[in-house]
Measured scan of single mutants.
Amino acid sequence: MAAGGDHGSPDSYRSPLASRYASPEMCFVFSDRYKFRTWRQLWLWLAEAEQTLGLPITDEQIQEMKSNLENIDFKMAAEEEKRLRHDVMAHVHTFGHCCPKAAGIIHLGATSCYVGDNTDLIILRNALDLLLPKLARVISRLADFAKERASLPTLGFTHFQPAQLTTVGKRCCLWIQDLCMDLQNLKRVRDDLRFRGVKGTTGTQASFLQLFEGDDHKVEQLDKMVTEKAGFKRAFIITGQTYTRKVDIEVLSVLASLGASVHKICTDIRLLANLKEMEEPFEKQQIGSSAMPYKRNPMRSERCCSLARHLMTLVMDPLQTASVQWFERTLDDSANRRICLAEAFLTADTILNTLQNISEGLVVYPKVIERRIRQELPFMATENIIMAMVKAGGSRQDCHEKIRVLSQQAASVVKQEGGDNDLIERIQVDAYFSPIHSQLDHLLDPSSFTGRASQQVQRFLEEEVYPLLKPYESVMKVKAELCL
C-alpha cells in the first residue's frame, strides 16, 4: 500500500493539533497551500530580480507567473513527485505547466533550498508574528487579574506546605514575570531571523556568478533584492546548502521555554482548584465526569500541561538535527523538520489560546482563602504575639514557653481530632496574655502579614508589564474561544 493518505478522510490519521486544537490561522501558515504558494512567490521574486539585473526574462513571463501564483494543481504535483521522487522539481514542473512561456526560467540558477529553506524562514517569521500578540493578550488578562487582587491576602506555599502570606495578585505576578520573559525572547528570536537568500547549491553562489558572467556586484544585488522582497532586513552571508540548523534550535528553545512557563502556571491553577481557592472557567453544560456528576475538573489547565510537556520535548529534535548536518548538509534534517517545526508552533498556539481562555474567566473564592488563612495564621502570628507581650512588660522566655504549650495543644486538636485551630481562643482565655487581649485582632490582621506584596504588584505592572504590552494595544480586544 502506498504511503500517505487522504487526510480529510475519517479513515486516515490526522494530527489532533490540526484537527482538534490549533487555530485556523496557525494551521494555514503550515498548510501545503501556504507552503507551495510561497515557493511560487519566491520563484517570481527571483525572476523579477534577475530581470532587473539584466537576464533575458520578459515582462510577459513575469506576468504569467504572477497570474498563476494561486493556480496550484495539487493532484498534478503529487503525481509528479511520485514520478520524480523530488518535491521541488515536482512543483517546478507543475508551475511550468500553467506558465508555459515562463517554464524555462522558473528556478533559474537556484537549488531546492532556495524555495525550501527560504519558505521555512518566512513561515517561522509569520508563525512567530501570530504567537506574539496571543502571548501579549494572556499577559494582559493576567495583569488585569493581578491588579484587581493585588491586596487580597492568601496563604503562600513553599514545598506545598503553608508559608508566609502573600497576595493573590502577587502570586499571579510570578506567572506574568515568566511570560514577559517569554514574550521578550519570542520577539528577540523573531527579529534575529535572517533570510537564507540566493546562495546556490553549497552556499557559494557559483551558479549565479556564472549567470551574471562573473559580476560579483550583481550577485550581491540579486541576494539583497530577493531578501528585501521577502520582507527581511538581512540575509546570511555564510550558508551551506541550507541555512544553519542552529536557527531551528533557537526558535524551538524559546517555544519550549514558553511551554515550561505555561505548565507551571496551569499546575498552580490545578492545585488551587483542589484547594477550592480558584477555578478555571466551567461552562453551564460542561460535564466533569461521566460517573461523578459533582466533579469540576480543571480540564483546560490539564490540557495545557499535557501539550506543554510535548512542546518542551520537541527542542531535542533540532538539537540532534543540527549535530548531524555533515559538511554542507545531509538530508537527516528533512523529514524531522517537516514534523517538529509545525508541531512546535501548533502546540504553542494551542496552549496560548487555551491559557487566554482560562485567564479571561478565572474565578476566585475569597471566603475559602480566608478560612485557610484562619487555619494557619495563628501559628504564624506567634512571633508577633511574643513581641507584643514583651512590649507590655512580659518575659520573652516565659511567653515563648506559654505559646509553645498552647500551640501544641491547638495542633493536637487540628491533627488528632480534625478540629479547627483554636490557638487564639486559648490565648484569649489565658490570664497571662490579658495585657494584649485587646491587640489580638490587630495582630491577626492578614494584611499585616503580606509585606509589600501589593506595592510590588503595582510597581511591576507599571514599570515592566504595561510598557512591554504597549506595541500590542491594537490587538488586545480579541477574545479566545474554545470549541473543545
Rank of each mutant, 00 (worst) to 15 (best):
Asn68Ala: 09
Gly197Asp: 03
Ser9Leu: 13
His217Pro: 10
Asn336Lys: 04
Ala260Tyr: 02
Ser454Cys: 12
Leu352Phe: 15
Gly104Gln: 13
Asp6Met: 14
Ile269Asn: 03
Phe157Val: 03
Thr267Val: 09
Leu17Val: 14
Ala392Glu: 14
Ser140Asn: 15
Ala143Ser: 13
His437Cys: 11
Ser67Ala: 14
Phe160Asp: 03
Ser19His: 13
His97Asp: 12
Gly109Ile: 00
Asp216Ile: 06
Phe327Asn: 06
Ala308Tyr: 03
Ile62Thr: 08
Ser447Gln: 15
Arg33Ala: 10
Gln456Pro: 02
Ile358Asp: 06
Arg83Phe: 13
Val251Ser: 08
Thr313Arg: 04
Ser19Cys: 14
Gln221His: 10
Asp215Ile: 11
Gln439Asp: 15
Gln286Met: 01
Phe379Thr: 04
Gly104Cys: 12
Asp32Cys: 10
Leu311His: 05
Ala388Met: 05
Ala103Ile: 09
His400Ser: 02
Asp430Cys: 09
Leu155Asn: 01
Ser67His: 14
Pro10Leu: 15
His400Thr: 02
Asp268Tyr: 02
Ser290Trp: 01
Leu307Trp: 06
Leu440Ser: 05
Val262Pro: 01
Leu275Tyr: 06
Gln375Leu: 07
Ile123Lys: 06
Thr313Phe: 08
Phe449Leu: 03
Leu179Trp: 05
Gly451Tyr: 01
His263Asn: 15
Ser438His: 13
Glu48Leu: 07
Glu283Met: 14
Lys479Met: 14
Glu148His: 09
Ala127Gly: 10
Gly394Trp: 07
Lys284Cys: 14
Val363Ile: 14
Ile287Tyr: 02
Asn357Cys: 11
Arg149Glu: 10
Cys173Arg: 02
Val368Asp: 04
Cys399Trp: 05
Trp45Lys: 04
Ile106Gln: 04
Gly116Met: 06
Lys35Trp: 01
Leu362Trp: 04
Cys98Gln: 13
Glu343Met: 05
Thr52Asn: 11
Ser19Gly: 13
Phe449Glu: 05
Lys479Cys: 14
Val29Arg: 07
Val478Met: 15
Glu277Gly: 02
Ser323Ala: 09
Lys101Phe: 09
Ile249Asp: 04
Ala348Ser: 09
Asn336Glu: 03
Glu25Asp: 12
Glu343Trp: 03
Gly169His: 02
Arg20Ser: 03
Asn274Trp: 08
Leu124Lys: 13
Thr52Phe: 06
His7Lys: 14
Lys470Gln: 14
Val414Asn: 03
Gly288Phe: 04
Thr244Glu: 00
Ser9Arg: 11
Leu174Pro: 15
Glu250Asn: 09
Leu155Met: 04
Lys35Asn: 13
Leu377Phe: 04
Asp333Val: 02
Glu25Met: 09
Arg83Cys: 11
Pro56Val: 11
Val475Thr: 13
Tyr466Arg: 13
Val226Thr: 08
Ala230Ile: 10
Leu319Phe: 05
Pro10Ser: 15
Val115Ser: 08
Leu209Trp: 12
Asp349Pro: 02
Ile269Val: 11
Thr347Leu: 14
Arg404Met: 09
Arg426Asn: 08
Pro24Tyr: 14
Ala47Lys: 04
Ser31Cys: 10
Ala103His: 07
Val198Gln: 06
His107Ser: 01
Leu469Asp: 02
Val251Leu: 15
Ala103Asp: 13
Arg337Ser: 01
Thr450Ser: 05
Met181Asp: 12
Ser323Thr: 04
Pro435Ser: 10
Phe157Trp: 07
Ala381Tyr: 08
Gly5Val: 08
Glu280Phe: 02
Asp215Gly: 07
Asp422Arg: 07
Asp317Pro: 06
Glu81Trp: 00
Leu183Trp: 11
Asn353Tyr: 05
Ile265Val: 12
Met380Gly: 02
Ile72Pro: 07
Glu80Asp: 13
Thr244Val: 04
Ile123Gly: 08
Leu469Thr: 15
Leu423His: 05
Thr111Gln: 01
Gln221Arg: 12
Pro366Ser: 06
Cys483Trp: 08
Glu277Thr: 04
Gln241Met: 04
Met476Trp: 15
Asp59Leu: 09
Val364His: 05
Glu277Tyr: 05
Lys170Thr: 01
Cys483Pro: 15
Ala411Arg: 07
Met387Phe: 09
Cys113Lys: 05
Ser454Met: 08
Gln63Gly: 09
Glu79Val: 09
His310Glu: 03
Leu311Val: 08
Ala2Gln: 15
Pro100Tyr: 09
Glu277Ser: 03
Ser359Asn: 10
Gly96Gln: 03
Gly96Ile: 08
Gln397Asn: 13
Cys304Leu: 14
Asp59Ile: 09
Asp59Asn: 10
Phe157Tyr: 08
Cys340Ser: 11
Val254Tyr: 14
Phe208Thr: 04
Tyr432Glu: 09
Arg303Val: 03
Glu228Trp: 13
His93Gly: 13
Leu346Lys: 04
Thr94Asn: 11
Pro467Gln: 15
Pro467Arg: 08
Ile385Trp: 03
Ser253Cys: 12
Trp175Val: 04
Ile122Tyr: 11
Ala150Val: 07
Arg85Gly: 01
Lys66Ala: 11
Met387Trp: 05
Tyr34Trp: 09
Gly5Lys: 15
Asp248Pro: 03
Ala388Asp: 02
Thr267Gly: 13
Ile424Gln: 14
His97Trp: 12
Gly259Val: 01
Lys134Asp: 15
Gly96Ala: 10
Ile351Glu: 04
Leu209Thr: 11
Leu108Asn: 11
Phe236Cys: 06
Ala136Leu: 14
Asp11Cys: 15
Ala163Trp: 01
His159Val: 01
Gln428Arg: 13
Glu70Leu: 10
Ser290Leu: 02
Phe36Thr: 14
Leu186Pro: 03
Val254Asn: 12
Glu425Asn: 12
Gln325Ser: 13
Glu464Val: 06
Arg372Val: 03
Asp216Lys: 05
